[in-house]
Amino acid sequence: MSKPIELKNVSKTFRHPMKVWDKVEAVKDLSFSMENGEIVGFVGHNGAGKTTAIKMIMGFIWPNSGEIKVNGKDPGDQEVKKTIGFLPERPYFYAQLTGMELLNYFGRLCGIKGSLLKDRSEKLLRRVGIFDDRNRKLSGYSKGMLQRIGLAQALIHDPQLVIMDEPMSGLDPIGRREVKEIIRSLKKEGKSVIFSSHILSDIENLSDRVLIIENGVKKHFGTVSEIIPPDRIRYKIEFDSPNEMKDAAFALFKGIRVVSERFIIDCDDLDDFNTKLSAIVEKGYPVLNAGGVLPSLEEIVFTTENTEVKQ
């Protein structure tokens, strides 16, 4: 069975918007593939090349070099499109059509007709929470509602692969939770999902694997535990102090900080941690919390010195 998405050494260059003779490399030598039924989170700064990569996967633009296969075929192939659902970033649809009309339009393009189309449209409108607004013109939809109708149109033909560019943007916390639930339910249905997001906690919670891209270059691709290596564990001690011992507590070590009336000290390594913990206990300060903490995905992504490419 072919992989839902496979990129091999894909690069894309654009003309510089201001200097026509200059070129901007939006994506450089990008390779990755995803498995059937998995959720891949796509992470990177603004302008990192996420949307460019997604547009190439969708066949809207073409790579300068490299190869892209979607379900084993070229992107843009009509048969491939029948199996893909796509939600663009900040979706905008025909202002004069109603939500129901939009789903009818897109459903018919996918070959769905009659009662099947009606049933599926209504079911999806309920699933994304805008059923009551189905007969309102899209010009009256809020940003969040457009995001929801965008999600409904992406799923109208029951695609096997769903590609979403910033699906959570513009949504309130409840909306975000609902979209996350939809993404999880798609996985339960055996579908493959790739989505980009700036909200790294969402990526961390939802994704089987995470693709991190920076300046068009793949930085990491793997599970969250693979991306956050154990050797990057940080040790931290939190302790309390009676009022009369507070001044002495600050004198214990350099770099002590106070957060919510708790004294916190970061340690360089395990030896440093043990030394400092012993000293704190010896002086009679009550220890509130002590141990190793893994860095968050956010810290990994936004640590600029970590630029090695992990294949």
Partner: peptide, 14 residues
């Protein structure tokens, strides 16, 4: 310009 074309061309439409 409004990017309504992207979802449309993602469907099986040449």
């Amino acid at each position: 310009s409004l990017k309504t074309l992207h979802p449309l061309l993602s469907k099986p439409l040449s």
